[in-house]
Design a protein around this nucleic acid. Sequence first.
DNA 1: TCCGCGTTA
Length: 755
Amino acid sequence: MTQERPPKRRKQNDGLINIGGRMVDLGFNKVKSQPPPPPTPKQDEQQPEQQQQEEPKAEKTKQNGIVTKKRNGDRPKAQETPMLKARKALPIWAHQKEILSSIRKDQDVLMIMGETGSGKSTQVPQFLCNEDWCRRKKVKIEGQTDPVNVGGMIAITQPRRVAATTLANRVAREMGTPLAPGVKEGSVGYSVRFDHNVPRGTKVKFLTEGMLLQELLRDPNLRQYSAVIVDEIHERSVDVDMIAGFLKQIVTGNKEGRGGVPLKVVIMSATADVERIQEFFDSSESKQSVQLLRIKGRQYPVEIKHTERPVPNIRDALYKQITQIHEGEPLPGDILAFLSGQEDIEALQRLLEDYGASIASNVPKLLPCPLYGQLSMQAQQAAFRPAPKFTRKVILATNIAETSVTVPGVRFVIDSGKAKVKQFRSRLGMESLLVKPISKSSATQRTGRAGREGPGKCFRLFTAEAYEALSEADLPEILRNDVLGAILTMKARGINDVFSFPLMDFPDVDSVEKALVQLHFLDAIADDGSITEIGRKLALFPVSAQYGRVLLAACEPQYDCLLEVIDIISCITSGESIFYQLQMEEEREETEELRKELFRREGDILTYLTAMQRYTAEHSDRVEWCKKRKINLRNMKQALNIRTQLRGMCLKEKLLKEKPLPDPQPFEPLSPERAEALLKCFLTGFVTKCALLAPDSSYVTTHGKHLVAIHPSSVLHGQKKEAIMFLEHVFTQKNYAKKVSAIQADWIVQALTKE
DNA sequence: TCCGCGTTA
């Protein structure tokens, strides 16, 4: 252990803080040290082992005993461990006092704009958790006889599961109470779906945004928390926008539900639109202005190069840029190229493989590594392994590498400036997935990926003028998504007039009304717009309202197929698809032969059911079973988790009368009669998503009369059926129906005229 | 003949 005291020197930053609405430049230290210190590990590392290694052994001494409850900042210097030294070197550390003083007393909301590497996600919860206002209090609540506990914990939300769990582990180690299975007490915990670890005495709890939304359903006042920290709000997921709305209501409300104890809220953002978010919380009702702290990050410098002229062909430009870097820049230094999708990645990969075969033996080899979400874990691993000797990796990635995963070794980023963007069209009841220009904020994020391990370069395949023309930030997801789920969440939380709910961006009236009509159709809301018992149940299920409705219908005697419906919905909601796409000709024949026993001519719904039933009937080697059929093992495991969860919920809600028999159960194919009942059951949620075969052999939707084609991923692709029902409707190259089943036209009429 | 990325007692 070191006795050395860190040199008394102000921390590196260009600290700007906002005091009473005025930006104040703290002005200290504009000198850059040479070379810059390595950036802090980001919270989104894919491999947690990587982070484990950084921990110096010295910390172990603190882990056994009970940790002394000291205020942050006044620990004895003699005990300063390397880890504490590293923490103190983070740019955010210099702002600890400002952060604490700006959220004490009457000030309940604080905004922190901290760039990558500022240390905000790991340090801010630790700063706050020893404050007096963070203690648990016993209070009287009107209408309740016994006093109730309020506060004591800090929640910190993350958009992604990996971030929540790895950050929790890191902070736990920093606080000297590491998280481990079997350790029953500690100061740090986390909660993500299917993975909870909240020890007794937890003061800081990391959770996914979806998890906090679930907690809000059960406890609208978030009584167990003294503070909620909302991290990465700039990503603007639907969930985080909903959380922001609920938090604003709690902060500006009368606090009766919390026995008068205020809830502190810290909003943390990396970039973009901070003022807008600040304004949102800066409400006149609360009579307090929200302070904004700006904290510089710590990244290596990245040189940005735009093209002189617009590029006529992005694929050619990417190819040229990659080969140019490869031939002109010394090793080590991998390349990360951002493309819009799998098709582009595969095409470029083939070009680069041809190039690699042609390069001279004295030039380093070039190893193209595709990286996109649908790729199997095994295939993704190549991108994360260090490049072999005398080889440069070039990672061809989608947006997955922008925020979700971090690829080590990257010094060069090439940015195509494009990404696929989903947009829901409420008028047509379908979504589109189209290639669009990215935002400035996204371009900055991509650029930053070159400066994580050393100075880097970013080549943008668009001009500086084109960059200036980009929008500042991406359109928030709530303006691009179906709002049905969000509206149901509001209704279930007692917000009857959804238009009064505070949202940073409100969806247009038309799409809200469409959602209300749809909810009414699903019997989730009554004629007067109030939520029904059915609606309340639907909001509880971790599936879309439509799938939830099918689950409830499955209990009715005329359908009586709840276990089957649970299997199917588990399978569908486990991921994009359980079937990997087949590539090579030979493996295709062999795999298709094995897959035949899963495929059913009734369509995708029954195929999913068969796959689940055969998988769970398999008792020898499920891994091998998946491998042989090229089935996504990760999704199948997830599907089993969801199945267990849904079965448990149905037992609790008395939808299921008794516990189902444990696996493995022998496989028995569903009879045609039962199959018919099952499909009719799905019609209760999806009768608006049907199409009839037209005389010219095309399909025309019954609602809207649009042309629709059966997606190639469907087992019914290329087949002609009298009528089809589909669970998804997406415009990409054309109007596609996905997850398709063959039905009879008169079933649609029956389903519409029921009651 | 298609397949941006997440998330849910």
